[in-house]
Nucleic acid binder design. Structure first.
Length: 760
DNA sequence: GCCGAACCCCTTTTT
DNA sequence: GGGGTTCGGC
């Protein structure tokens, strides 16, 4: 590669730390990149630098991300920066890259050539069927939990044989299910998400030629969001790097919020040990937020122990204070948000400049309700994605069955959708037959349809339908195939008969699927040419490519261009994004930090989540909590989040509610100030950093305590059940009941007079 | 076998 | 409170 004559564009816009990371010699680097410090920028410029200045071939670069969005953004920005074709460069998600390898080396990996990817939903269904096939009860062995366990094993690179001798009865059953599940996957040619990674790892570790090939090829491995890697991903990268490859890992331990799905922050420290000579570069200058917002974030995160250590700073101004609002309830909170949004919109903000972040998805409902009433256009992220929709999965099941008759998961789904008179009893019998002779459902149906009694004819007809479709569509373009499948299987008619708005949307989605298929159509001659041109690139037939796309990229949920909406999402979903104005709602104990996090003592991750939320804001941040909130249909009284005390008080100003709002549930026009009296609030005096009074909840100000002098949320001890937290009160006087969540004994409802509870 | 009613769960989620 | 699943009647 000819080095660029002028490297100015690669480094001119970088600050010293960024420049150091970008222009470092090709050795191991760990870049600790604080929020908003130009992490992606460094990654992109680093790749460009390697190619344009170090003369590295794009072929020897492997760049890995977690999401497709991050991968395509990276690709786009590199292409923008240097005028070099990088088509052949491996930039992608962990799963995408693993998939690529497995398509190229399916034989060595021990997979079927036409293997398909099992999504999370299908995986649970399959595990459930496996549990039942082992004559275990799926109540005693909840499929979701077992699936989670299996995935956790895979993410630690553990196969059943590594677990066989360990453990108690429960574990032995788990291992039994894991083993049977693996067999089921193998038989139907299915690979789940974790399996993609595990296979690719084992392939790279155990097959010498393949290991040598990729080690020779990938001399430069770059990883984004390194704090989110799990054990398996780490091990895989390590195998690929070997002795010669250099690692360039970018991450932020303070933004590690996915430990619950296997992410290991420790990998950052491990990297330094496993890759000798790793130099650490810290990016601490923030280009996103105001000084005030950063000060709040820094103050908060400083409460965590176990940090690699970093302090964000900015040379932009202090900006406005953070506004904190104490709402009566979730409706008042939502109205506060809507009102402030309106002010911003009447100012010069676009809708899309504004975002509402919350801890749990359930919180979006009320916000939505109020936004609709306020006529503020909004968009919720994190709903069902396109390829996860029922009607889409139905249609895909048929396509997959055309592709691979042994795909039991698709058989199960397609066989009676729409209803064909093949019900639970017949299917149970069919499963037994298949199990007895270790064949797929398709084979079992083919061989033994006659044994199915009344529904035998229906089953035979179904088999014929699939076979006929196969013949008819042999030379058809993919979109035509899809169209025909939707028509001939009766799916379209099925959804046409359904009434309501949703049914209409479903028909539209099916049409959308047909046009999506169109973009995967390729000419066989062109494919052959591509395959011979680049042997390191798997060339997929249109159907395989389409099905893979459906599994690996479950559909964009980005607002379309020109769509100017306020954005709603969970704090988790907000990671990596930024907005001029951010509202974080529901900042209450029990919700944020969540009850569970408190119980499990996992406050640090919860605090990091708040840190992530705060650092999403560029210009203005609003925080709010509700004193009363309906949770699962029950009113609960909440206290402001413990994290609020950890934000430096001078950053926050408490905004008082408008006077004259009815206090819900009390029916009086009592002005707020009268029962809020005495609340010191934030930023209203007192030395910075000094102990501040916590805002009192309604409970506290209205006589406060529940019957017996206990508070909601209070820790109590019961002579028999041990320690717990008060969830709710019911009634008063002698018959007052109290609901307590005990640490070990679960939730109990007790009559207060007899409970003999002791406050802690 | 099909459909409506009771029942049960309930943080966060990408691939 | 709401959505998915299972159960029971037809």
């Amino acid at each position: 590669m000819q080095p660029l004559a002028d490297i100015t564009p690669l480094v001119a816009s970088l600050n010293p730390a960024q420049k150091e990371a970008v222009t470092a010699p090709p050795e191991h680097r760990l870049v600790l990149a604080g929020a908003g410090s130009g992490k992606t920028r460094v990654l992109v410029h680093r790749i460009a630098w390697l190619i344009a200045v170090e003369g590295v071939s794009p072929l020897s670069i492997l760049a890995v991300t977690f999401t497709n969005k991050a991968a395509s953004e990276m690709r786009g920005r590199i292409e923008q920066l240097i005028n070099v074709p990088i088509r052949s460069m491996w930039v992608g998600t962990f799963h995408g890259i693993a998939h690529r390898m497995l398509r190229l080396h399916w034989k060595e990996a021990g997979l079927a050539q036409n293997f398909q990817i099992l999504d999370a939903d299908d995986q649970v269904r399959l595990v459930k069927r496996v549990i039942r096939s082992l004559d275990l009860s799926d109540e005693q062995w909840p499929p979701k939990m077992v699936t989670g366990w299996i995935n956790a094993q895979k993410e630690e690179a553990r196969r059943p044989q590594h677990l066989a001798d360990l453990g108690d009865f429960t574990q032995r059953q788990y291992v039994r299910i894991y083993t049977a599940y693996e067999q089921a996957c193998a038989q139907s040619g299915m690979v789940d998400f974790a399996e993609l990674l595990l296979r690719a790892f084992e392939l790279s570790r155990d097959v010498p030629e393949i290991q040598a090939h990729y080690r020779r090829r990938f001399r430069h491995i770059l990883v984004d969001e390194f704090q989110d890697t799990n054990t398996l991903q780490y091990l895989w990268l390590k195998v690929l790097a070997g002795d010669q490859g250099t690692m360039f890992a970018v991450g932020d331990d303070d933004q590690s919020i996915y430990s619950w799905r296997g992410a290991r922050v420790e990998n950052m420290v491990r990297l330094e040990k496993d890759f000798p000579g790793t130099e650490v570069v810290r990016l601490e200058q923030n280009y996103r937020s105001t000084g005030t917002i950063l000060k709040a974030a820094n103050g908060l995160i400083a409460k965590n122990t176990n940090r690699l250590g970093k302090n964000l700073w900015t040379d932009s101004g202090e900006g406005e204070q953070i506004q904190l609002y104490a709402a009566f309830n979730e409706y008042d909170e939502a109205e506060f948000v809507a009102n402030r949004m309106r002010e911003h919109i009447e100012g010069r903000s676009r809708h899309s400049d504004l975002a509402i972040l919350y801890r749990s998805n359930a919180q979006s409902r009320v916000l939505e309700e109020i936004l609709i009433r306020a006529r503020i256009p909004y968009r919720i992220y994190g709903g069902l994605r396109f390829f996860e929709r029922q009607e889409i999965k139905d249609a895909l099941a048929y396509l997959r069955l055309l592709h691979n008759r042994d795909d039991d998961t698709s058989f199960e789904r397609a066989v009676n959708t729409p209803a064909r008179g093949i019900g639970a009893t017949s299917m149970e019998r069919l499963r037994e037959i298949a199990r007895a002779s270790s064949v797929s459902l398709w084979m079992a149906a083919k061989n033994a349809a006659a044994q199915l009694g009344r529904s035998a004819g229906n089953v035979t007809q179904f088999l014929k339908l699939i076979d006929d479709l196969q013949h008819e569509t042999r030379d058809m373009e993919l979109s035509k195939v899809t169209e025909l499948v939707i028509a001939r299987t009766g799916l379209r008619e099925h959804y046409r008969k359904e009434k309501g708005e949703q049914a209409e949307a479903r028909l539209e989605n099916l049409d959308e699927l047909i046009s999506a298929a169109r973009s995967f159509e390729t000419d066989p001659a062109a494919r052959a040419a591509a395959a011979s041109e680049n042997p390191d690139e798997p060339v997929l037939d249109p159907l395989t490519a389409f099905l893979t796309h459906a599994a690996l990229e479950s559909g964009e949920e980005q607002a379309g261009p020109g769509e100017d909406c306020v954005q709603l999402m969970t704090l988790h979903a907000a990671k990596g994004l930024e907005f001029p104005v951010v509202f974080i709602v529901g900042v209450e104990n029990g919700l944020f930090p969540s009850m569970r996090a408190v119980d499990e003592g996992n406050l640090e991750e919860e605090r990091r989540l708040f840190y992530v939320g705060i650092t999403r804001a560029r210009r203005k941040l609003y925080l709010s909590y509700a004193e009363i909130r309906r949770v699962h249909g029950v009113e609960q009284i909440g206290a402001p989040s413990m994290f609020l005390k950890e934000v430096p008080s001078e950053c926050v100003v408490e905004t008082r509610p408008r006077a004259g709002i009815l206090r819900p549930g009390f029916g009086s026009r009592e002005p707020q100030s009268s029962y809020r009296g005495g609340y010191g609030g934030y930023g209203s005096g007192g030395a910075p950093g000094a102990a501040r009074p916590l805002p009192r909840s309604i409970a506290a100000s209205s006589g406060g305590l529940g019957p017996g002098g206990f508070r909601l949320g209070q820790r109590v001890e019961h002579p028999k059940f041990g320690e717990g937290t008060i969830l709710s009160f019911d009634g008063d006087g002698d018959r007052a009941q109290i609901e307590v969540k005990f640490r070990d004994a679960g939730v109990k409802r007790l009559v207060l007079g007899f409970a003999n509870l002791r406050g802690l």
